[in-house]
């Protein structure tokens, strides 16, 4: 399997998948490496632009510090929220142990 470019390596793709909490098969790793390289190759036009002095745009409309009065208001029903959860205990989301063996 030959990558289309040396823009991103197979091991970098594996690293990114780990960061994103995804597990890839060997075949997927090959395919995604080629496909991500193709997108990054296309992005070479942007990478090559000189944009020194241009401010980054994070948002289309200049709104700042949007606040509301600090008054408690009704929100969604906690029981309705918990009803949609995969596992619940004592009105909390239940998850498997986070540090290996349970105490």
């Amino acid at each position: 399997m030959s990558a289309m470019s040396d823009r991103i390596s197979r091991s970098e793709v594996a690293h990114v998948a780990r960061l994103a909490r995804l597990e890839l098969t060997e075949d997927e790793l090959d395919t995604f490496t080629d496909q991500l390289a193709a997108v990054l190759d296309h992005a070479a036009d942007v990478e090559a632009l000189d944009v020194a002095g241009v401010a980054p745009m994070t948002h289309p409309y200049p709104l700042r510090n949007v606040l509301r009065p600090d008054i408690p208001t009704a929100t969604v029903d906690p029981d309705e929220v918990l009803a949609a959860a995969p596992a619940v205990e004592d009105r909390r989301f239940r998850v498997p142990p986070i540090l290996g063996e349970a105490p």
Partner: peptide
Amino acid sequence: GKAQRVRTL
């Protein structure tokens, strides 16, 4: 970062 600056352009 580059893409955000291009967005400004």
